[in-house]
Amino acid sequence: MALTYLHTMVRVKDLEKSMAFYQLLGLVETRRHDSEEGRFSLIFMAPPDQPDCPIELTYNWDGDDGLPSDSRHFGHLAYGVDNIYETCQHLMDNGVTINRPPRDGRMAFVRSPDNISVELLQNGDALAPAEPWVSMESIGHW
């Protein structure tokens, strides 16, 4: 039995904020479907060099009162990055809270505007531990 990865779907409350968050991570919109009849939009975003590995943002035009929730039942998304420290600094500079800082030079967690947990993993070997990350406390949960 062959298995092909298609996408991961998350529901979003504020489409513009959510798209801006994923753009900060480096994802770009690869395709979109707007359903007038169903009153929803599906926006697919992926790393530019990996268009076959998208996340699907599902946006209900009339709102979704259940969002944002804790979303821990979802698990998390994970993306590899070339420099965990630069990526986290870029996110912080743009108002994103680093919930689990990359104290080990390997892994960090942040949350999207819709409370989706996103794991960032250093590509290759871990970077040497460095400040301010080593001394930074975790915030909330991931």
Rank of each mutant, 00 (worst) to 15 (best):
N83K: 12
A108E: 00
G95H: 07
P51A: 05
G140L: 04
P68A: 06
P51W: 01
N115Y: 14
G80Q: 15
P129A: 10
Q50C: 08
F40N: 01
D125T: 11
E37G: 12
G140W: 02
L42H: 11
P132Q: 11
Y22P: 02
S18H: 09
M136K: 14
L67E: 06
T30F: 00
V134D: 06
Q50L: 09
S69D: 12
C88A: 08
T58W: 08
H90G: 01
P132W: 04
S35N: 14
V118G: 01
N99R: 13
V10G: 10
V134P: 04
D62Q: 14
L67R: 12
R111H: 06
W61F: 09
P113H: 08
R100V: 06
A108H: 00
L6D: 15
R103M: 12
I55N: 00
C88R: 05
Y5H: 09
L3D: 14
W142Q: 12
G63H: 09
Y22C: 03
I84Y: 00
K17S: 13
L6F: 09
D52L: 09
T4E: 15
W61E: 15
M1F: 10
A130L: 08
S112H: 07
A78H: 11
E86G: 11
G75C: 10
E137G: 01
G124V: 14
C53F: 09
P132T: 11
A126G: 06
Y79G: 04
I43S: 00
I43M: 03
S135C: 05
P132I: 10
D14S: 01
E56R: 00
P102E: 08
S135M: 07
M107V: 06
E137W: 02
A128T: 15
T8Q: 15
N83C: 10
P129Q: 06
N94H: 15
G80N: 13
P132L: 12
V118E: 01
Q89K: 11
N60A: 05
S112A: 05
S112F: 03
S69I: 03
K17C: 08
M45L: 12
E29T: 06
E86M: 11
V96Y: 04
H33Y: 13
G124W: 08
N60R: 08
G80F: 10
T87Q: 15
D70S: 05
L57E: 01
P47F: 10
F44N: 02
T4P: 11
V81N: 03
V12K: 04
T97P: 07
D114C: 07
G66F: 08
W142V: 01
T8H: 08
Q50F: 07
T4N: 15
Y85S: 11
Q50S: 13
M45C: 05
F40K: 06
R111Y: 05
F44Q: 02
I43L: 10
M92G: 06
E119N: 11
H76S: 14
A78W: 09
M1G: 14
T87R: 13
L15S: 09
S41C: 02
A108F: 03
I98F: 01
N60V: 01
V134C: 02
E56M: 08
T8W: 04
S138N: 15
T30G: 00
N123F: 09
S69R: 11
H33S: 07
A130N: 03
T8K: 11
